[in-house]
Write a protein that binds this DNA or RNA. Structure first.
Lengths: 86, 86
DNA sequence: GACAAAATGCCGCAATAGCGGTAATAAAGA
DNA sequence: TCTTTATTACCGCTATTGCGGCATTTTGTC
């Protein structure tokens, strides 16, 4: 049951990260250390900041074992195409 | 068949966007207009830039009808929790 | 309650994302 | 082929992110 993210409900991302961080028993500083980012950006995201950089967000999600996925009607066409090859 | 995104394979995002843009028969300027962003950032993303802002990326994905998802082992616990409520 | 330790809130600054403008390149038509 | 038009590449500048530092607040122990 993955969670859809779009610009309207972006606050969910902050809630998801907060939820996972607490479940893992980590302070913001702990998570910042593990993820390799500053603590401020975790504060910002948990407070719903939408203008975070994607690589920063991915580091945090990765540290919390959360996966980001992209999907859509013609994604199959892409994965089968040559473009998808590394 | 959604595509997993992490910091290692981020170039995929650029390829996915390029693929979808071409399928839709849009120039970068067209897509920039529809998404409500500058054309430069589309150029950047398609060239693998990892330091794009998440809201900017979401605008572009939305314009191309691509969905972003977050998933993980304990995501159920979140969606069932009070935190998930709008 | 008093104190200590941990966690959170937030400020100022350096680094840089994303914008429009324009040059370079590619595509299309005569 | 030669022009015209569309698309892509990239530069310089301004606005903004994300950082460490520090004040504040919360949590835990006696």
């Amino acid at each position: 049951m993955a969670v859809k993210i779009h610009n309207n409900n972006f606050k969910h991302v902050g809630r998801i990260i907060h939820f996972h961080r607490k479940k893992a028993g980590l302070s913001r500083i702990d998570l910042a250390m593990v993820a390799g980012v500053g603590k401020t950006v975790i504060y910002d995201i948990e407070h719903g900041k939408e203008t975070v950089r994607i690589n920063t967000l991915l580091k945090i999600l990765n540290a919390l074992n959360i996966t980001m996925l992209l999907d859509g009607p013609i994604m199959e066409n892409f994965t089968e195409s040559e473009d998808a090859k590394s």
